[in-house]
């Protein structure tokens, strides 16, 4: 049984007569209790997709259901069952932490006490600041408060639009740990992010670019399906090395990745051939090894197709 089903959804915006497609014929399904990631850079269409699924936006074409309910016809019923955290910080900045939480609890026909067990984990971290105005919280704290508010009515499906954008690495890590624990409670979670390294925290991911889905699979499977040979190279002069590698006839693509350059070889080319070519150029401290593709490497490779 699926929690979210999307079939052939398209959406475009018209501004001053220019029509820009935001979503192009998107289809996917999310299983109940799954932690599903939608990964892509700004402008991929993540927010439009979330807005359609949370009944805030009408698609031009296609259908979608959340918990078996149609997003257009049954929008009222869906609104009772989903939790939504928009991309921007969308709480009342001039209300305190406690006031915000109480307010959202009432609006969603419940009380903080009723579902305290669900948010307890998260809320205890911000409880010391409960009389502080939301606008005065740090990025990580705001995010925890927003998540508490989105969870307060014990939703069956949680939509989190770029919850970790602009948040530092520590808070990001903590946030994903919170999501894992929520998943254990049986909540289906859809989360979007521009950070490719967050893909591995998800059960399954959809890689999105320019309104289309490049691939849907488990992160492990996506990495495993990377077909080309990838090498990691480094030397004392990285810029020259990159220029040299890019100019090589054996190389399909090369780009910096951490302390190495990732080099993707052409179909017939072998690592030895490149090794010989680079050795001939006498780079100091040259190191060539087999590269381990990441989701980001896969994403870039998929973007080229």
């Amino acid at each position: 049984m699926y929690s979210v089903e999307v079939q052939h959804i398209s959406k475009s915006y018209t501004v001053k007569k220019a029509t820009t497609p935001a979503l192009k014929d998107i289809s996917f399904a999310v299983k109940k209790g799954e932690l599903f990631g939608i990964i892509g850079p700004d402008g991929a269409g993540k927010t439009s997709l979330f807005r359609i699924l949370t009944t805030l936006l009408l698609a031009d074409e296609g259908t979608a259901t959340v918990e078996g309910l149609d997003v257009v016809k049954a929008y009222k019923a869906i609104r009772e069952q989903v939790g939504y955290m928009p991309g921007r910080f969308s709480l009342y900045q001039d209300l305190t932490v406690k006031e915000n939480l109480d307010f959202f609890a009432t609006i969603f026909n419940t009380s903080v006490e009723e579902n305290y067990d669900l948010i307890k984990d998260i809320y205890v971290q911000i409880e010391p600041f409960r009389d502080r105005k939301a606008g005065k919280l740090s990025g990580g704290m705001k995010q925890k408060l927003a998540l508490s508010c989105a969870l307060i009515h014990r939703p069956k499906v949680l939509f989190l639009d770029e919850p970790t954008t602009g948040v530092d690495a520590v808070s990001r890590k903590e946030f994903w740990e919170m999501l894992k624990r929520l998943k254990e409670q049986g909540i289906t979670i859809l989360v979007s992010t521009p950070y490719m390294d967050e893909a591995e925290m998800c059960d399954r991911v959809a890689l999105m670019q320019n309104g289309s889905i490049l691939s849907i699979d488990t992160p492990q499977q996506i990495v495993a399906s990377f077909a080309q040979t990838m090498l990691a190279v480094r030397s004392a002069s990285m810029l020259q090395l990159l220029n040299k590698v890019r100019a090589s006839s054996f190389v399909e693509n090369a780009y910096p990745s951490g302390i190495y350059h990732h080099v993707i070889l052409k179909q017939q080319a072998t690592a030895d051939q490149l090794q010989q070519e680079l050795s001939a150029a006498a780079f100091a401290d040259l190191e060539i090894k087999k590269g381990q593709p990441t989701i980001e490497d896969c994403f870039m490779q998929l973007m080229r197709i």
Partner: peptide, 10 residues
């Protein structure tokens, strides 16, 4: 480079 796609980031 916040929010920029990986190719453009490179």
């Amino acid at each position: 480079t916040g929010g920029v796609d990986p190719v453009t980031r490179r």
